Amino acid sequence: MADIQAYTYDENYIYERPIIVDADNIPPNCTATEPPDGLWRGQYQPDKDEWIETATADDIQQIILTMTRSVSE
Rank of each mutant, 00 (worst) to 15 (best):
P18R: 05
P18T: 08
I19A: 12
I19H: 07
I19K: 08
I19G: 04
I20G: 03
I20H: 01
I20M: 10
V21L: 01
V21N: 00
D22E: 12
D22I: 07
A23G: 14
A23N: 13
A23Y: 05
D24V: 02
N25R: 14
I26Q: 00
I26Y: 05
I26E: 02
P27Q: 10
P27G: 06
P27L: 07
P27H: 08
P28R: 07
P28D: 10
P28K: 10
P28S: 10
P28M: 08
N29M: 10
N29H: 11
N29V: 05
N29K: 09
N29Y: 09
C30Q: 03
T31M: 06
T31D: 02
T31I: 03
A32W: 12
A32I: 09
A32K: 12
A32R: 11
A32E: 14
T33F: 07
T33S: 10
T33I: 15
T33Q: 14
T33N: 12
E34Y: 07
E34N: 09
E34R: 15
P35E: 02
P35D: 04
P35N: 05
P36Y: 02
P36E: 07
P36F: 01
D37E: 15
D37Y: 06
D37S: 13
G38C: 07
L39E: 04
L39K: 03
L39G: 00
L39Q: 04
L39V: 05
L39S: 03
L39R: 00
L39P: 01
W40N: 04
R41Q: 11
R41C: 07
R41K: 14
G42P: 03
G42Y: 00
G42F: 04
G42L: 05
Q43L: 02
Y44V: 01
Y44N: 01
Y44K: 00
Q45K: 15
P46K: 09
P46I: 10
D47R: 09
D47V: 09
D47L: 12
K48D: 12
D49A: 15
D49C: 12
D49L: 12
E50Y: 09
E50G: 05
E50I: 11
E50D: 11
E50F: 09
E50P: 01
W51D: 00
W51Y: 07
W51Q: 04
I52A: 04
I52Q: 03
E53D: 07
E53H: 04
T54H: 05
T54D: 00
T54V: 13
T54Y: 06
A55G: 07
A55Y: 01
A55I: 06
A55W: 03
T56L: 04
T56G: 05
T56I: 06
A57V: 14
A57L: 15
A57M: 14
D58G: 06
D58P: 00
D58K: 10
D58C: 04
D59G: 03
D59N: 11
D59L: 06
I60Y: 04
I60F: 00
I60P: 01
Q61S: 15
Q61H: 15
Q62W: 05
Q62N: 14
I63W: 02
I63V: 14
I63H: 04
I64E: 12
I64H: 08
I64P: 02
I64L: 13
I64V: 15
I64F: 05
T66M: 11
M67W: 09
